[in-house]
């Protein structure tokens, strides 16, 4: 089993929502013209992902999965409602976004000023539903793991959008061929950043490192044994 920290780091870097799966590209392209708005949207994505994925995790494990209803009694143990998961997940996402919007407006007007206009956009951001669906597919074993995955994915998305916004602010001063300006160059830049992010795939996580250490210790012991002979 992967540790929670592994899941967290992995979902930021090697399984980055934008660079590895292209999720949330629409708002990524539309709201990345300046760093300021990019930070706002990125923060909103972190927030909403961290709230919705755990809720959907509970929904998945206590309502939708095959056999998930067994806590109701023996006769419910055979039910498999997983075909309903799309509609349930999107309903949860849409309603939580509405709820969060209202709560933030009431209790944190300053935050609402910063995030407000982005929150409704987020209900249809692929990365939020994508987070829920990946959580379902990968079957995280505990609520904590699912939350770590959601928080990490949010941070990964945040890094991606802030980075591209910074680059787009800078390239305004460069001489780009006219047909490539705007959308075209953004696509190519994202592709190049994706290639850069692929180098994170070489990161070794907890268990692999331990295994390797054990192997090197073994081989070194063997060699010392041999030299002693």
């Amino acid at each position: 089993m992967e540790s929670t920290l592994d899941i967290f780091v992995k979902s930021i870097f090697s399984e980055n929502m934008i660079f590895a799966y292209f999720l949330g590209m629409c708002s990524y392209l539309a709201v990345s013209k300046t760093v300021k708005t990019a930070v706002g949207l990125g923060a909103a994505v972190i927030f909403v992902l961290t709230v919705t994925v755990p809720v959907n995790y509970l929904l998945e494990n206590y309502l939708l999965k095959a056999g998930a209803l067994s806590w109701l009694g023996e006769e419910y143990a055979d039910y498999d409602l997983s075909f309903l998961s799309f509609i349930m997940f999107i309903a949860v996402v849409a309603s939580i976004v509405q709820l969060v919007e209202m709560l933030v407006e009431k209790f944190a007007p300053a935050l609402y000023g910063a995030l407000g206009i982005f929150l409704p956009l987020i209900a249809v951001n692929c990365s939020i539903l994508g987070g829920a669906l990946f959580m379902q597919e990968r079957q995280y074993s505990t609520l904590l793991d699912a939350t770590a995955f959601a928080f990490g994915s949010g941070i990964g998305w945040f890094i991606a959008i802030v980075a591209i916004a910074a680059i787009r602010e800078k390239i305004r001063y460069s001489h780009i061929p006219a047909p490539l300006r705007g959308l075209g160059i953004t696509f190519i830049l994202t592709g190049l950043m994706g290639i850069a992010f692929m180098s994170f795939m070489g990161i070794k996580y907890g268990k692999e490192v331990k295994k390797e250490k054990a192997q090197t210790v073994q081989t070194s012991q063997l060699t010392t044994a041999k030299t002693q002979e």
Binding site: R181, T190, G194
Partner: peptide, 26 residues
């Protein structure tokens, strides 16, 4: 690899805007 999809789309956009000047952005 996934990033190449983005670069191919970028190139397709490039070709399309080369042919249709109205679509070009500032």
């Amino acid at each position: 690899l996934p990033p190449m999809a983005l670069i191919i789309v970028g190139v397709i956009i490039w070709v399309q805007r080369l042919r249709n000047k109205e679509l070009q952005e500032d």
